[in-house]
Amino acid sequence: MNKQQIDILINEINSFDTIIIFRHVRPDPDALGSQIGLQHAIKKMHPNKSVYVVGTTIDNLKFIGEMDQLTDDKFKGALAIVLDTANAPRIDDERYSLCDKVIKIDHHPPVDQYGTLNIVDTDASSTSEMIYEILTSAGYGMDYIDALVARCLFIGIVGDTGRFLFSNTSPRTMEISASLLAYDIDHTAMINKMQERDAKGMQFQGFVLQNFKLEDGVGHIFITKEILQQFDISASDASLFVNAFADAKDMSAWAFAVDEDKEIRVRLRSKGPVINELAAKYNGGGHPLASGASVYSVAELKKLLIDLKKIVNE
């Protein structure tokens, strides 16, 4: 990020009466935290503007905030700000294209610069961290970051750093998190809520731990539609268990594949080998150590696993 980009962003926010904030499909805490945190901050800056957040509602993350339900006419003449979304096909509401202007703010490698303004910082732990930096760099920190904004940005940072355990946790990340904790937020309750699982989820986690395979340094499991039905769990809820076997000894990377009807969504994680190029090869992308891919048959999933083993054992 640079000051010139931030100034342009603030000028655009000042210029539009309607601002609609988007994020990616299958949102995580960072996508939702940055989205709702920015919404509240802009509303504080401009109480008379219409500021909306859109996307599919995820039940287990409702505690972060609720989405707005908009008719198509609301998008015309609006400014679209898309957060935490590396490539346009993953934006969770195709009506961003109806807006007058699109701005992208993201911390993933910039493979698809779809915005008229693209603010990308791959050194940031999360998009929530970026939103904090944008607000404070623009001089809005003290006035427009309140407890409501702070709780959203904090949970976003916690989510994308794996509770500060992942390698993307920098000294700056910790400084920002400490600053957010100075507000009146119950961070323990939020983290507990984020980690909370119902009985079905815990039983599903037991299945994952009993049935994942570890071969040549690669862990993997394929959750079929039959398994989802057996545990009465949705594909999106199943994906929350991507790190269920992350602590397995002698495992350098892993793949958590879920049958989502039209595609098999594969979440890739690594303890060292770079995997985002592999994800890009299979219709996806992401960070060097945390990416997502899509395949369309069991045979293609097997090819992906073979390629992942090659990367781990090079």
Results as ranks from 00 to 15, higher is better:
46 H>L: 08
142 M>N: 12
50 S>Y: 03
68 D>R: 04
151 R>K: 15
163 R>E: 14
142 M>G: 00
269 R>N: 15
32 L>Y: 01
50 S>A: 11
44 K>M: 10
146 D>C: 11
160 D>A: 04
7 D>T: 15
223 I>N: 08
279 A>L: 00
123 D>S: 14
294 S>L: 03
1 M>P: 13
244 A>M: 01
208 V>D: 11
268 L>V: 10
43 K>F: 03
312 V>D: 03
228 L>C: 06
21 I>K: 03
11 N>E: 15
200 K>G: 00
96 Y>A: 12
70 L>E: 09
233 I>P: 12
50 S>R: 12
300 E>V: 02
106 D>P: 12
5 Q>I: 02
86 A>V: 01
93 D>R: 06
104 K>W: 05
288 P>E: 02
203 Q>R: 14
128 S>V: 06
261 D>L: 05
289 L>N: 13
144 Y>V: 13
96 Y>W: 14
34 S>G: 09
159 G>Y: 06
159 G>A: 06
72 D>Q: 14
33 G>W: 06
247 D>H: 09
40 H>L: 12
195 Q>T: 02
63 F>Y: 15
74 K>H: 13
109 P>R: 06
24 H>D: 02
310 K>M: 14
209 L>A: 08
133 E>M: 11
304 L>A: 02
85 T>K: 05
234 S>K: 04
35 Q>H: 08
